[in-house]
Design a protein around this nucleic acid. Structure first.
Lengths: 160, 160
DNA sequence: CTATATTGGTTGCATATGAAACTATAGGAG
DNA sequence: CTCCTATAGTTTCATATGCAACCAATATAG
């Protein structure tokens, strides 16, 4: 006698990778966001702009920031103007293109950045402290693999 | 002669784990969200509610859904009413507590769910197809470790 | 039993986010 | 050059999200 087993395709949300990813990220982002907000009055997009600008001592355009972080140009624009209003960021003319400016940290912005970095690293340590360096590298590698796949998929979709 | 090396704490946003996590999740969530939206007219919170309800054939309360998914009760409430408006979800009285209802899928809701699951799995396959089962398990395990740590941290903070 | 505190869920409001329209500058094509 | 198209950035508007206030039902203290 033959046993015919009908399997209905099934899914446990709890084990569904996009869900798990989102679940964890929300937890982490909330923790990070409230830490920055509380300690420095920065929102996440602002912190990101500060970080990217800090990594480009010769100045970056908003467009470059948006490209790198995949933040919407509106988000970058608002984060930048908030930072400029607080004198943490400076605009200097971009000799190569007058539509844009080069953003650099002001003295105050540099000081703020120097103050944030240790706290950011400490927070990362609090969360990932139990991960070995190998595990962290593994996690980052997997995330980057996913990035590459989804980005390729998106480009494909845009072509079609 | 002693070389004194001053190291300023430094951080590359690109290698900062909370950032990487958020970056990847945004990519994946956008892809998933547009797939569901396009194919079924569901937003992510709605899809999650459908999925959780499907896993509880005897009914679940909104509160239980919120607890499990960590979605805000407002988000759950709105997702549920949208689904009820579309006759995908039914409310039945909760004998144990008259403030809440037990949510179950309607016939149409069950049919929708059966149609979504294969697509959701296919999408997961598109994104994670190059991951072995071991790698997927590893990724999920890491994410759950992070969840546990952040949740513990949050509870601690609430106590303090 | 009442009176009070708590909890499930909804509604209202305030904020965050992104798409689309717009402005100003750049970069060709003729 | 002049015209046309494309791009950097801002503004406007529509939508998503979550906190706070609220209502109704429940649990607890006296």
């Amino acid at each position: 006698m033959i046993a015919l087993v009908m399997t209905i395709a099934s899914l446990r949300l709890d084990a569904f990778l996009p869900y798990r990813l989102s679940f964890t990220t929300n937890l982490v982002s909330d923790a990070v966001a409230s830490a920055y907000e509380e300690a420095f009055g920065l929102r996440i997009p602002e912190w990101r702009v500060v970080a990217v600008v800090a990594e480009h001592p010769d100045g970056v355009t908003q467009q470059a920031i948006g490209l790198k972080t995949r933040m919407d140009k509106v988000t970058v624009s608002r984060a930048a103007s908030a930072l400029i209003d607080r004198d943490l960021l400076q605009r200097t003319p971009n000799p190569a293109d007058q539509r844009s400016h080069l953003l650099m940290l002001s003295t105050a912005g540099t000081a703020l950045y120097r103050a944030i970095v240790p706290q950011a690293l400490a927070l990362e340590e609090q969360i990932f402290g139990s991960f070995t360096q190998a595990e962290r590298a593994q996690l980052v590698a997997m995330l980057r693999r996913i990035d590459a796949i989804v980005l390729a998929r998106t480009v494909q979709a845009a072509d079609a």
